[in-house]
Design a protein around this nucleic acid. Structure first.
Lengths: 185, 185
DNA sequence: GTCTATACAAAGATAGAC
DNA sequence: GTCTATCTTTGTATAGAC
């Protein structure tokens, strides 16, 4: 089964969303996958290697999301689609793996920090572009430049996922609706 | 020196903001404070006890902030004051200790989770009240209820601190200005 | 209140057999 | 590709002396 690697990455991603990169162990992971720690090390010699692999997959998914997003003609639909897709990747009480590793920024390996920065920027840029296009075609209304608005929307979305953990989990939908209508209406 | 306890709490809080609760050790802390691990255990038998102490101090500071905040007459000034105070407690490249522990929610002791939930709720409630008063006296303009707006503002603020870590750190000020003017103008 | 010394468990990682 | 066994380091925590 060559897809062992893929399976490991999948479970590791779930763990990062649940516990964080630093707080899941090769022992946890090996048990969840059903192999030994040694086998895990065979596939990903160091935990750092696994971390990089996880981030590469996420990066690929985001690039794919960008493609799919711009296949949609209508700006409002496009915006909703993007957030719905993002929301779909995190289960209840999980957090965004990027947020998780932003929180751990000072304790993760340097190579991971670089990738996290890239991905963080990519996300905001994607939203910025969606907003710019939507403003031009008259779908969205906001003051200031698109990047600032994108920043507020993205940080609010990420922050809301985080907050859902410790308060009522309905707040994510509330916030999501709020930030979308703030530019659409 | 009875204030050893206070000193330990102070340094522990800094560590949580920099590395997270799970990722700083009694060894790190003992070296930073200048005492041995054993002495640390004398003051706070378990790491969990220290965690609770840290959160109690934060809770107290927030209650004090609420008092001070409502001593200010003008709604706009009050809102700015609150965010400036909050911002003042986190150094560049640190994150809010509450965000930090929200990210670690599934790996911290139960007693800490409870406190985190309380504090998270308190913060949003404080902002909600500021917004409600300001809407009534005509200082603020926003649609929907104050709680939703407070949620968006608070999650955006917290998310921005987080994002500053991995992208340009100027985004915090950008976002802060954005969310304040969104209700003030 | 602080120390040295130590116990104990968990973590990341490697060696070598099958 | 997977295993058992083992190493090394680090983390939390305790015992007992000063």
């Amino acid at each position: 089964m060559e897809d062992r690697k893929g399976q490991i990455i999948q479970v590791a991603t779930d763990f990062i969303k649940k516990y964080g990169y630093d707080s899941f162990s090769y022992k946890d992971l090996s048990e969840a996958v059903g192999i030994t720690k040694a086998t895990l090390h065979h596939h990903f010699a160091k935990k750092e290697d696994l971390g990089i692999a996880v981030l590469q997959v996420i990066q690929g998914q985001l690039e794919y999301l960008k493609e799919k997003t711009f296949e949609i003609e209508d700006s409002k639909e496009r915006l909703t689609f993007m957030f719905e897709c993002m929301k779909g990747t995190v289960q209840e009480k999980d957090i965004c793996p990027i947020s998780s590793m932003q929180a751990e920024f000072n304790v993760i390996p340097d190579s991971l920090r670089g990738k996290i920065s890239e991905i963080s920027t990519f996300e905001v840029d994607l939203l910025t572009q969606i907003l710019e296009v939507g403003k031009k075609d008259g779908s969205f209304h906001f003051e200031g430049d698109a990047k600032n608005t994108a920043l507020i929307m993205m940080t609010s979305y990420k922050g809301a996922i985080m907050y859902s953990r410790s308060v009522e989990s309905t707040i994510l939908d509330t916030v999501l609706e709020g930030i979308i209508t703030s530019v659409v209406k």
